[in-house]
Write a protein that binds this DNA or RNA. Sequence first.
DNA 1: TGAATAGTGTCTTTCAGACAATATGCC
DNA 2: GGCATATTGTCTGAAAGACACTATTCA
Lengths: 231, 231
Amino acid sequence: MKSTPINTAQLPTTPGEEKPAVTVTVLIFSVHNDNFQIVLCKRTREPFKNEWMVPGGLIKIDESLEDAALRILEEKTGIRNVFLEQLYAFGDPKRDPRERRIAIAYYALLPFNSIKLAKDGVHPESKWFPVKQVPHLAFDHNNIIEYAKKRVCSKITYTNVAQSLLPEKFTLSQLQKIYEVILEESLDKRNFRKKMKSLDLLTSLSEKQIEGRHRPAQLYTFKTKELVTFD
Amino acid sequence: MKSTPINTAQLPTTPGEEKPAVTVTVLIFSVHNDNFQIVLCKRTREPFKNEWMVPGGLIKIDESLEDAALRILEEKTGIRNVFLEQLYAFGDPKRDPRERRIAIAYYALLPFNSIKLAKDGVHPESKWFPVKQVPHLAFDHNNIIEYAKKRVCSKITYTNVAQSLLPEKFTLSQLQKIYEVILEESLDKRNFRKKMKSLDLLTSLSEKQIEGRHRPAQLYTFKTKELVTFD
DNA sequence: TGAATAGTGTCTTTCAGACAATATGCC
DNA sequence: GGCATATTGTCTGAAAGACACTATTCA
């Protein structure tokens, strides 16, 4: 069974041993133009020079994982106050050709119009991509995005996290579109509204949204901004 | 918004910067005597000398996260071929009083009688504890167990992972007990069996289990050992 | 025959899914 | 009036939940 039993259970301090580097990677998602979209950055140096990547960076020695994710999120978007959740730790020893790096991935969901991507020359170029059209990425980042897609699909079906992708006030059609885009299937309008009503998550406002030459739509908000899990 | 924009998106090699240590921690769970149980180890040195902890150890530089988890699992149980899944990365900078250590937690589910805990003196004392009766643990390990409990509860309800906790052949009463112990609620026998039948996951064997002075019970196996997700 | 656990079916309620017509505002 | 989107209810089938009695073995 076991060849050389070494007592690692004690977490002994081993100053001589080589440590992996730890990075935090943040997948920034939104929905826009009937597409589930993600922010990618263009690399300016080797390895994978000129290829696209998910934004991330080395963790600082006194910074929590979530703080690191918030820092990276803020560098890219200027905001911090959005849905952010740890996704998974990716640790294949060969995932970075330079050295051993473990990536702890987070994902954020935000309303598309809440941010403008920095184009200030300090950061490398960053851009929204429809998730279905992301090119070949640096490192294992295509894998990470695939993993995140599944998480978002399931999370949106059993929680109220869809609100993270919408502005404060929204119409039922906008909300339905979020579900349709992420789940990649069209939903029946009457059944969708019946379900939303039964979940009792929304407050209908007195305002209406007037847009185009057609009947204005009722505006709604979520009753709570907390993450609510149902089912 | 942002004070000093530093370009961390490029993952630059920063040989001078201090790295956190990375450990992998493995929560080994089973069900026995109507209790959800976990393997804990007694610490033999500071910090937290003589307190109990979840087994774990520093990751090796060329070892994947899962390989590290398998190594630790094998050190404790002698086996590798069980359900094992990454749980979460715990990274509070203060979670270890000695130095910055990030713990990547895995959890394993196995049949109680499949292993004997090593008592060979090479490893520190390790012992099964009912999850409801774990004492105050070293580091943030009580938190980690709480997190894992929730994961196991949800995972057992929408996958066939319960089989990981049972021997190859089992009775429906044994299977129901697994659910009852983990979900901490009693289930209706007829509804439980109806549901299991409709999921079509089980094969009934020709054998019966004779135990005690009462009617023998039909034995079953799972049709597939793959993890199946339903709902 | 008594003790202990195995095994089984019906009724009710709830939820998901299919499906189409009217309402409102703007041009 | 025509166009574009908003809004609304019924029927059906499937699944969940409540509920109690008979079957089998052994001491």
